[in-house]
Nucleic acid binder design. Structure first.
Length: 320
DNA sequence: CAACTCGATAACGAAGCCCA
DNA sequence: TGGGCTTCGTTATCGAGTTG
């Protein structure tokens, strides 16, 4: 399984136009099929995740819900046939016609949002709006490909470890909304709650694409003091990581920032000794070595990727 | 001697197939 | 059903051979 292949950045295969959910009866067949499906709960949880994180790749769905890629492929195929999700292929414009090199990418369709809302007994407008928003931004989606990959790779790396796991993954959409509600216009790309045997480690993710001007980088660094939550910065290159570290130094950020770069992630994985403390020049540490807080009542068996976690946590990766 | 062409091979993801 | 193995279509890579 390969992660963090961020260079391909064009999506093909999606419908050209957004298709509204249609008259109320149109989605009925799909809804009926889903309701009678033996894997209904897992499929609904997959739809919930698509709604929360705007899109997911086959590999990410596998990390969260399956133990083999085949299962993920089959279930996603079924959702596609029912018209609940859209499938896109990633292509690299520099090579041309290159697809299948990257995992396919799935978005919630209007019908999928409609069915999901009905299963949750909520009004469909909000979920459809979110799905439409994701669809309208489909051409820019891949700029954030690393964020979802990061969290999914964390699930993948931890799901078989009995003494730790990722419990919460709050996507960039929800994170940004929460910050906006607090009147802040600079928001990280996600938030996570990582459980160990004795602690819970809270962290924000700052997935840097190396495209932001240094002024904005400095603003981000200065804002990276989130009430004691760690901020994990991932840079595309070692040089850029140094740039981030300089910005952190200059901004005199009071928060606890840690930095790494893609090469470290690919080589050692998200649980490796890759996180270098922001200020100073300490050696790189593991995520599980970062200071945490006392454990809540949340159980390790309910962490993301554990068998049947979605049955006990109907709110997806963000709820409960 | 550098630049290119060609072919074999490796790698990858999706899907087909078989089996418990 | 899900899991695992196989097949298929595709691209990247590399080295040998060829050409200017």
């Amino acid at each position: 399984m390969s992660w963090f292949q961020a260079d391909g950045y064009v999506l093909t295969g999606l419908p050209a136009e957004w298709e509204p959910p249609g008259p109320a009866g149109a989605g009925r067949a799909a809804a009926e099929g889903l309701l009678q499906d033996r894997e209904r709960d897992r499929k609904l949880a997959m739809l919930t995740c698509l709604s929360q994180h705007r899109w997911m790749t086959t590999t990410e769905v596998e990390a969260l819900f399956f133990t083999s890629s085949r299962g993920a492929q089959r279930q996603l195929r079924r959702l596609e046939e029912w018209g609940l999700v859209h499938r896109g292929h990633r292509t690299d414009p520099h090579v041309g016609g290159n697809w299948r090199k990257y995992p396919d990418l799935f978005l919630l369709s209007a019908r999928g949002a409609w069915v999901l809302a009905h299963s949750q007994r909520t009004e469909p407008q909000e979920l459809i709006r979110r799905a439409f928003y994701a669809f309208s931004n489909r051409l820019h989606i891949l700029h954030g490909v690393g964020v979802n990959d990061f969290f999914a790779s964390l699930v993948r790396a931890s799901r078989e470890l009995p003494d730790q796991g990722l419990y919460h993954w709050v996507g960039d959409d929800s994170t940004r909304r929460k910050f906006q509600e607090q009147g802040e216009d600079i928001a990280p790309d996600g938030w996570g709650r990582y459980l160990t045997e004795s602690e819970e480690i809270y962290f924000y993710l700052e997935w840097d694409r190396g495209t932001e001007p240094s002024a904005r980088l400095r603003a981000k660094a200065a804002a990276a003091d989130h009430a004691g939550h760690h901020v994990l910065w991932v840079a595309p290159s070692p040089a850029r990581e140094q740039g981030i570290r300089s910005a952190l130094q200059a901004s005199n950020s009071q928060g606890t920032s840690w930095t790494t770069h893609i090469g470290q992630l690919q080589e050692h994985g998200p649980l490796g000794e890759i996180w270098q403390p922001g200020p100073g020049d300490g050696h790189r540490q593991r995520l599980t070595e970062l200071p945490g807080r006392p454990r809540s009542e949340r159980q390790l068996e309910d962490c993301l990727g554990r068998p049947g976690w979605w049955l006990r946590r109907p709110g997806g990766t963000e709820g409960m």
